[in-house]
Design a protein around this nucleic acid. Structure first.
Lengths: 220, 220, 220, 220
DNA sequence: TATGAATGAGCATTCATTCAT
DNA sequence: CATGAATGAATGCTCATTCAT
């Protein structure tokens, strides 16, 4: 299972191997239950080397959070085209998000579960990433208002709350989609777009949100 | 900080003291970081007594989850009047939910963060409660469709996804409301109702969901 | 499994129940692994009562040793008729010994294994009983010499060693007989008599010891 | 008392030091009363190192049993010359046995007392060694029969019982010799040879077994 | 660059034992 | 006569971390 034990590799490569092993271990066992022994073994190096490169368990975990957070935001960013309409941007972003979390369950576990569960300094580390995403969504909501030629009288805090709600819904649906067999990322994204854009009231009235023509959207 | 050290209490009382201490400790430190020593001290008893009454750390944690899950669902149930309209039931339920989580942050941390982060058998314990809530929300969505005299052509799984999204949004807003100074439970509930019932599209078009007249809602 | 829980019994009866439970528990679990909790439960009384009557785990174990040692020597004594010839006495004594140990495996475990394994003061307690048996066997050897009209020039220590060897052989055969299906007490006793009385040399030469006519030997 | 605290030794050496300390502690205190703390201290290492090398208390105890069993059988084997007559082989083997047990009282305690007292998996571990010795003695008895030009009509189980008795007598005499000041291994062996080979009946009749000329018997 | 050897500190759990009633 | 309530003191075991090479 562990990486093939090759000697004398450049530091950057070794570090990535260690982070790979750490993300996998932290994601599956949890922060506290993961042992440095297991991580070192999975990485195919000795424990002192892990300490030499990454200082401590806390630092290692923080490095994992940062790497996975960067990977997630990069994936979302790569999926979104800022010149398109707001709902299209949200649609693309959600698909990228669901795809990335489905393909990186351990990284997503680190970000969504482990980091938030084990207090400072980890919680604020991941909170920063989340704030970035919430800000992005907030921007989209405001852009949608502008596109509707309507200066929203929604107070700023209300918009922030809506963005929070949308992000929370997305997080929840990511877990649901991963746990429910047969649910695709596209389906999860469509469900959320319907929910967010049309509202349940409109859905009940038979006015769902209409997905854009399925332009090829090869993420990552 | 700890309970006043009163000697020789009946078992039932002591057990509740222990659960109080355990919920607080688990909620703040996390399952693994919480030590039985700390819990016992906070409960004002010796460690062997904790083991005598609650058997093991796992059993103690499970007992915490069950108690807090029961308390949360009871609070929501107590806030909802099944004879009212679906949106009103959702509105009442959300307010009860936000109020309860705000007043029991440690219990909510146990349920929402700790239990889900530490694998079986805890995850399924809290998953059962969450499934119950999702089922309740699913019922409300179907009831809303009936009230709109509309046989919903939404497939079952789509409804399940919507309920997941709504519950996830509520969980996210609970954290947001608790973390953002000055946000009341009513405000959080209103934000979510707007989001869920009208959809962002309608909001943009100036058609928000209208809260019901503020009938006295004295929850426990 | 435990004794029927009857209230308010005279002390002597309760004590025997406790000793029964203790012998069984000590015999099966071992001295250290046996817990006072288990013994009290098996005896059908509360733990403080065990302490009230028997003071401590050490005292309880000592009481077990004494009771079982007395029972074993009494059984052997009851089987032996001092007016008979020495070899007949040995034969009868061995049969009584094998019968008693087979019928009281827990008591025998307490005496033969547990008491000797856990140091003072238990070892000397059971050593006293063993010394008594060795002395009895020593007497039989000397009596046999007298019966052979032969003042044995065997030094005293040599006789003591022979008695030790015989007792050790008997102990070993007791375990062997209990562990080997189909080996009766009579067979074990015959094997040992052959061994002791004739010696392997005579056995090889076809001159075994001949058991006495099987006079009714109702032990117990 | 403990080994001189030398730092940084190769694993194999440290392991032997740990086993030395463990045999001593288990032999004197018993399996359950011996604490890993005490063993580690006596070995001059920290507790984690003991666990790193020997895994658990059970594994450590098992390792002790195996090492001591191997040492004992090796000592006996080294003392016996298979080309000699059966009684001579028994005589040599007994002397080696008594010598080894006298020189390794803690190891003998581990094998004879502790391992048998604490159930599986220890009991069967030492039972295997004992079975080996019993088989060796059984072979000697059959060889003696052949040497006497006599096809023994002793049934197989009878021979097994005789071997059991002989081994039990030897075990008992080992304790007796160690506890009785001034009793040499040669004396103990002679007593047992007399007992086993001639039988008490012959002894009474003045026909003891005659030890072989004291050929130089330089055991280990 | 890399590691075998080693440990201080802490944790879950158990047990013999004792009050207060 | 009898017990529910309670604990001080260990004990097996693990882990993050470091040193010497």
């Amino acid at each position: 299972m562990g990486a093939v034990k090759t000697k004398r590799m450049p530091r950057a490569v070794r570090e990535q191997q260690m982070l790979d092993a750490a993300v996998r271990t932290f994601g599956q066992r949890g922060y506290m239950a993961a042992s440095m022994d297991e991580i070192a073994e999975l990485a195919g190096v000795s424990k002192p080397l892990v300490y030499l490169y990454l200082n401590s368990k806390e630092d290692l975990f923080t490095a994992c959070i940062r790497r996975e957070a960067a990977a997630l935001t990069a994936a979302v960013r790569a999926g979104v085209h800022p010149e398109l309409a707001a709902d299209r941007q949200l649609w693309d972003g959600l698909r990228a998000f669901f795809t990335h979390t489905a393909q990186n369950p351990d990284g997503w576990s680190v970000l969504h579960l482990q980091a938030r569960t084990h207090g400072e300094p980890f919680a604020s580390e991941v909170a920063a990433m989340r704030a970035e995403i919430v800000a992005f969504v907030t921007e989209l909501i405001l852009a949608a208002a502008r596109e509707a030629h309507r200066d929203p009288d929604l107070p700023e805090r209300e918009v922030a709350g809506l963005a929070e709600a949308l992000v929370g819904a997305a997080e929840s649906l990511a877990a649901w989609a991963n746990a429910t067999p047969g649910v695709t990322e596209t389906e999860a994204a469509a469900t959320l777009m319907n929910f967010a854009w049309s509202g349940l009231g409109n859905l009940m009235a038979g006015r769902p949100w209409t997905p854009p023509e399925a332009a090829a959207q090869t993420s990552g």
